[in-house]
Design a protein around this nucleic acid. Structure first.
Lengths: 234, 234
DNA sequence: ATCGAAAACTGAAATATTTCATATTCACTT
DNA sequence: AAGTGAATATGAAATATTTCAGTTTTCGAT
């Protein structure tokens, strides 16, 4: 089932955003060292990129595609912690903690990623504290997003939570009020922490009230302000 | 109402855990530099130590007492993100992010804390990357706890959430199965993300079933295994 | 010691959410 | 082109949770 294979048409590191960002902080030599211990891979929609419970040995730079962070419960229930789109450095939360992956990272769209060896990366961080601090700021930013998700989940009802998710997807994942949703209704439910049926009912309601247009996977936020209001009142 | 005052009987830095931990990684000179830019303060139960929305200018080392991390919503609802007891370095999440406090930190027991100037601390981190990475690891650990809270909240019902909270308090805050709870029932509700009444009903149920003993603020976990089971099935 | 405000508690009604049963559509394989 | 399983959709019943109204208890300030 795991259909990744070394990408034939390798993206050149020259064009890579991560390289451009990094070489503002570290020497070209240091980046080359990272590059030597990096493997480029391609994943199909549905593939698992990092598996919950496995040892954290690599950092992942997502340079194309969309992934979900998914926590699988012992009783089979899933929870999606967040959804992010390229370009993004993944594993920030665990980046500096030698341990097991807290959650899985799965492709919800075809993805191209680079696997960077963590121990090599750590060496570079030790040599370049300014770089380390910059990356930690980025990780803190991700932490912030998680906290806000957490808050939404904790004291909003379904309408507010679904509104939050639609806003988040439009703002931070698809960067457009109209998008072709990569997630199933079930995955939306895992994201909102509710039942599938409740997602469907709520989306239908938003559609009836003219807040969104929705045709299968094709979504468009029509009344953004109303969505913000729903988010606010919870 | 803010009843903090410079502690008369200052704790000596010599005895401080934070100093002992730090000087494993940085020079005594560097630690003295931190010390010079540190202020020791005492807070009463109920006082706010760091205010949500204020600029993050200091790191806080809590060396005595218990605090809650509280997010205040626009519509007046509160959410407690976590509760931690001394000794602990607070502000790890925002530590390397020059910004506003995402949430308030309030004393739920009388607290003694040291305020450390963030810009001074940053300098030291830049000079001592090994120290920085060690602190990142600690911050990541806190992040992990938040994620697990988040998961509990997201797909457990009240029984499971209250069980989780009791386990957490016993294990990580009071370090004993019997404890004098510093939080009100309302605060427990803010922690569990539910109504006050629901907390009371659930605790009464646990008491009736012989899982806990509870007399006012005096709590004791009697049947720890049953609590674990409840936590597991959600 | 007393007063008043805040906290703890209880039961009933209202509301939100899940579960279950069933139908339809969609995507994909043969 | 037909068949299969997954995804989407809908309504009703069961369950969980909140809200409300009212009572008792606790705790700190005077």
């Amino acid at each position: 089932m795991n259909s990744n294979h070394s990408a034939k048409d390798q993206h050149l590191c020259e064009a890579c955003l991560f390289k451009r960002l990094s070489t503002n902080f570290i020497s070209t030599d240091d980046f080359c060292h990272i590059e030597k211990h990096t493997q480029q891979l391609r994943y199909k929609k549905g593939d698992t990129i990092l598996k919950q419970g496995a040892n954290t040995t690599h950092l992942v730079f997502l340079f194309k595609g969309i992934v979900k962070f998914e926590f699988e419960n012992t009783n089979g229930k899933n929870l999606i912690l967040t959804v992010v789109s390229a370009p993004k450095l993944l594993g920030g939360a665990n980046m500096f903690y030698k341990n097991q992956n807290l959650f899985s990272i799965c492709a919800v769209e075809d993805c191209d990623v680079c696997f960077i060896e963590l121990n090599v990366f750590r060496e570079i961080l030790l040599k370049n504290s300014r770089y380390a601090l910059m990356l930690f700021e980025k990780a803190s930013e991700m932490f912030k997003v998680s906290i806000l998700n957490f808050i939404s989940l904790a004291h909003k009802q379904i309408h507010g939570r679904i509104a939050d998710i639609l806003i988040y997807l439009a703002e931070s994942v698809y960067c457009s009020r109209r998008f072709d949703l990569s997630l199933t209704r079930k995955e939306l439910a895992d994201f909102a922490g509710c039942s599938q049926e409740n997602v469907i009912i709520t989306l239908s309601k938003f559609k009836k009230e003219g807040i969104i247009k929705m045709e299968k996977k094709d979504f468009e936020i029509v009344d953004y302000d109303k969505l913000l209001t729903i988010s606010k009142i919870g």
